[in-house]
Amino acid sequence: MTRTEIKIAGYGGQGVITLSKMIAAAAILHQEGITATQTEAYGAQARGGACWAEVVISDEEMIDYPRAIVPVDVLMVFSEEAARNYKGEVKKDGIAIFDPLTVRPRKFKVKAKRYAVPANQIATEELKMPVTQNAIMFGAFIGITGLIDEESGRQCVRDFVPSKFIDINLKAYERGLEIGKKLKEEESS
């Protein structure tokens, strides 16, 4: 019985909900032996304002408690407000992922291992398409946590994006994966 609790927070429109749904879908549809439950701050994704989502990944037949149990294993923050609110809710040996463009590292001091993924910067400067930051973050998440197989993630990206944007999003995903793995290596060395 192993549960992984994931919390993602930021502003509506940053892709918080989409990212959480991608993680849940990858775990449920593309990966054997595990299932997931996703809950979210309802209605915020379209309206803006503070927004959060939670994903629980588990190898149980049915996930009992549907929300992430605090302290969580993985915390991802995309705004300083979210960083301030949730920085105390991550485990000491957990994982904290943030985007240095929207969260200044000095505003996000946690005991967990911290990973800065410049998803916004890569999306706008390298790929010239800001919406791909979701795929980058998703790739980085998989690279860092290793909760989901790389191939499952690839499948999930294909399912989630409109057919004409599959290539660019897959490219973004690979880029994210690469960053994630690199950060992980740096951590262990």
């Binding site: 879908a25 449920i28 997931a36 439950t37 996703q38 809950t39 979210e40 309802y42 549907p66």
Partner: peptide
Amino acid sequence: DSWLGHIHEE
């Protein structure tokens, strides 16, 4: 309920 209605699950 409001939560169960918006939970995403298998």
